Simulated scan of single mutants.
Amino acid sequence: MLIDPFARKISYVRVSVTDRCDFRCVYCMAENMTFLPKAELLTLEELDRLCSTLVEMGVRKLRLTGGEPLVRRDVMWLIRQVGRHLRTGALDELTVTTNGSQLAKHAEGLVEAGVRRVNVSLDTLDPDRFQAITRWGRFAQVMGGIEAAKAAGLAVKINAVALKGVNEDEIDRMVEWCGERGFDLTLIETMPLGDIDGDRTDQYLPLSLVRARLERRWTLEDLDYRTGGPARYVRVAETGGRLGFITPMTHNFCESCNRVRVTCTGTMYMCLGQEDAVDLRTPLRSSEGNQALEQAIRDGIARKPKGHDFIIDRRRKAPAVARHMSVTGG
């Protein structure tokens, strides 16, 4: 087992397979992004080796993220490779976070590889608003992908970033829509990561306020349910669906953190809201054996901080962390 300095078992790793995305969501990245040179990214074979090493060291859950992971060429090969650890019982769960644009193409393949659940980022049900938020996204394509995922037997969880003055007026509708379709819904506060060509102080909407508004219409019953991530869940009595809240700004959820993130370049961040990191690419490429890689992972876990330092700085109007979410992995 990987144990951090605060006796937390690190059993969950989010691995980014690419920083590229076919959307340009306004809270995530600038429209004219400069992506990393391909030579800096881990190869699919290196990603497989890294994931396998993490599983051997006690990681029980892996989430593949991006950017948009399904736009990476031959990514299904990687997902099938990692899926072999599900069949041996060494890995409990392999999941994918996606914007849904490629789900129609890959939903059945994901199920065949062992994936049983996907998180789909969807911040609005209004096609025009969707276009404004994603800049490059196609609403009908995403809706088709979500339906394909459901038809293939994948459990779907919708992730929505709550944005002040953007989608706060339709969160009620999203709760209803997800309830009708049997989807879980998780609401997320905007996080101060990377330059986005805008001011996050205008976007920030505390979920404590959102919950208070929802309770005017819905009966929200607190649950002990956990997926291994940071969300705190309630059941919506009227729909029977689960509703999660991820609140890095209004409530620091770090006390139970069991995860680390590895970027598409092989950099392991022990905390999403801290800059301290460990280079895993060098030991991956410097030796055919895994001894140096394992030691680097253990060294990083030994430095995992107690919590993050996220803050929306209304004076500087600058991100708390310079790197973009698309590089770190969602």
Rank of each mutant, 00 (worst) to 15 (best):
M29T: 13
G66Y: 08
A322M: 08
R259S: 03
L103I: 14
R63I: 10
G144L: 05
L220Y: 10
C25M: 14
Q295V: 09
Y12I: 08
D199M: 09
N258R: 01
N159W: 06
G228P: 12
K38T: 15
V236L: 02
T201G: 04
R261P: 06
G89Q: 07
D222C: 09
S256A: 08
V55T: 13
R211F: 07
Q131G: 15
V118S: 10
A104K: 15
V26K: 13
R24I: 11
N252R: 06
R303S: 13
E40P: 13
S256H: 03
N119G: 13
V71P: 11
L64P: 07
D172V: 05
S287M: 11
G182F: 08
S208D: 11
F130A: 01
I312P: 00
L70Y: 04
M29H: 07
R281Y: 06
G229W: 08
F183M: 08
E275G: 15
G145Y: 04
A149G: 12
L293Q: 08
P319L: 01
P206L: 14
D22A: 12
D126C: 11
L36R: 12
E189W: 00
I301L: 02
K164H: 10
I79R: 00
S52Q: 11
D276M: 08
L125F: 14
T95A: 08
I297G: 02
D19A: 09
L44C: 09
R135P: 11
T190H: 00
E45Y: 14
I3R: 11
E189L: 00
L223S: 12
R14I: 11
Q131A: 15
E288Q: 14
L44S: 05
I79G: 05
M191V: 03
G83D: 01
Y12S: 05
H308E: 10
L47R: 14
E255H: 09
A113W: 00
I311K: 03
V234W: 03
A302G: 12
P305Y: 07
G194K: 02
Q81P: 03
P5D: 06
V175K: 05
A237D: 00
Q131F: 12
F35P: 09
A132H: 10
G330S: 10
R316F: 05
R285E: 14
R14S: 08
G307Y: 07
E168W: 01
D197L: 15
R285L: 14
R80N: 06
D48Q: 05
T265A: 04
R63F: 10
Q295P: 08
H85G: 01
I146A: 05
I297E: 01
A30S: 14
M143Q: 11
V278C: 04
G145M: 00
P248G: 04
G114I: 00
E108P: 02
S11P: 02
V59C: 13
E68W: 06
H251E: 07
R73S: 15
G307A: 10
R211Q: 12
H85P: 04
M174F: 02
K105F: 07
T227Q: 04
G244L: 01
G109Y: 11
M174L: 07
E238D: 04
L243S: 10
T18Q: 06
G329F: 03
S52L: 12
G289Y: 05
L154H: 03
V278Q: 06
Y233N: 09
A302I: 08
D197S: 15
A30C: 12
E294H: 10
H324C: 05
I10E: 07
D309L: 10
T53A: 15
C51I: 09
T190R: 00
N32C: 14
I246W: 02
L86N: 00
I146E: 05
R84E: 10
V96G: 07
Q203G: 00
